[in-house]
Nucleic acid binder design. Sequence first.
DNA 1: CGACTATTTGAGGCGTATCAAGAAGTGTGG
DNA 2: CCACACTTCTTGATACGCCTCAAATAGTCG
Lengths: 209, 209
Amino acid sequence: MNTVAQAVSIHAKFGASETSFRCGQEIHGQGEPANYIYEVQRGAVRSYKALSGGRRQICAFHLHNDIFGWETGLSYRFTAEAIVDTTVLVVRRHTLEYVAATDVKVTRNLLSLTAKSLEHAESHMLLLGRKNSLEKIVAFLLEMDRRLSCPSVLALPMTRRDMADYLGLTVETVSRDLSQLRASGLLRFLENSQRQIVLQDREKLQGLT
Amino acid sequence: MNTVAQAVSIHAKFGASETSFRCGQEIHGQGEPANYIYEVQRGAVRSYKALSGGRRQICAFHLHNDIFGWETGLSYRFTAEAIVDTTVLVVRRHTLEYVAATDVKVTRNLLSLTAKSLEHAESHMLLLGRKNSLEKIVAFLLEMDRRLSCPSVLALPMTRRDMADYLGLTVETVSRDLSQLRASGLLRFLENSQRQIVLQDREKLQGLT
DNA sequence: CGACTATTTGAGGCGTATCAAGAAGTGTGG
DNA sequence: CCACACTTCTTGATACGCCTCAAATAGTCG
C-alpha cells in the first residue's frame, strides 16, 4: 500500500487548493485550531515543538509528497514552517472527515499515514536518546539520501541549525562532524555550496550508525 | 472517545485469552512475526529497541489497560518484556484484522490508538532531544503520576535502569537527580522502598519541566 | 543468615555545549 | 558587475553536564 499516492488522490478528489509560502514563513502554529491538512508539492517544511529558553525540537522534515498537519485533536501540536520557498496542497479537515465518515478507504489511509509517522518517531527516539553526535549525523544523511531517492548530489534544503534541532545537537557540533566525515573522505561538498553533499561511500557510512 | 475502554470491548468480543509472564520475561521479540496484540491486565511492560554496545531505548511503558504489540507491518519493531509479574489479554492479529475489515468502528479505534502513541512519541522526542537530566526526571515522575491517576504514593514498577533507558540517561544520573529532588523537599521515599515515592509539591515539580 | 541485585554516592574523564572570531555564502541596491 | 550588510558555516578555546569507573549501602529472596 502506497500511502503517499493514495493520499494524493484524496486531495485531487476533493478540490484541494494550492498555496505558496516563502522561505521561513509559518504554515500553521502550535496550538492553533487544526483546520487544514497539507501536502508538499515543491519545497520543504519543518515541524517543531518549542521549549523555554529558545530550545526547539524539530520532529520531522516534510519533503515532496509528504502530508503534514493532520491531527486527531482540535489543535496543531507543532509549528510548521517552510524552510525554502514551498508550494503545498491544502484541504479542509472538515472535508476530509466528512469523506472518512462514509469511505472506509480514507480512514484506512489515515491509519496508514499515522502508523508511518509513528514508526519514524520511534526510530528517532532511539537516535535522540542513545546515539552519539557522529551516529546522529550519519543517520540523518542516510535518511535524507533515502527520502530524496539517493541522488548523486544530496541537496539539503535545511540549515545546519535545522539539522541540529532535528538531531538534538548544536550547530557547531553538526559542522564539526560534517568536517570530520569530509576529512575522512566519506563525503564531499560541492564547490560554493555547503548544503550540496556527495556521499562517497554509503556502505561505510551505514556502518557508522 | 475513550480508546482504552473501546479496545477492551474488542478483546472481550473476540475471545481474548489471558496469559501471565514473570518479571523479566519476554512477551515478544523485535523482528518476530507480529501475530498477537496484547492488553495489560495486571503488572507493567517495557517496549524497547536495542542498539550495538548494549544500548537500549525504552520507547514506552505499558500499564494497566494499555494495549501494545499492534503493528501495521509484518514484524514487531520492539522487544516487549514484563517488568513485574504481569497478566495480559491476548488476541490474534488475524482475528482483529478480520473484524476491522467489516467493522469501521474497529478501524477507527486502531487509528485512535495509533494517534495516541504518536502523540506520546512526539512529546518524548522533545524530552530526549532538548531537556536536561533534571527536567527529564521530573517529566517522568509527572507522567507516571498522571497515568497512575495521581495516587498519594507513586509505586513505580520499573528499576532505575529502566527509567534511565527511557530517558536517555544512566542509572547514576537518575539516582543523583532523585536524591537532589528529595534533598530539596519536592519528594520523599517511603521507608524500606526506593520505588515508592511521594510527590510533595506537584506544582513546583511542574515548574521544573 | 548469606548471596545477590538494586541503588546511592564519590572521583575523575569525556563528549558536547558555550563563547568567540573569522570565513564563506547570500541578497540588495547602486 | 561590484559594494556592502547580513546570515550561515566553520574552527578554536574553554566550560560543564553527564558518563564512567569504583565502592559502599540498601533491599530482596532463597
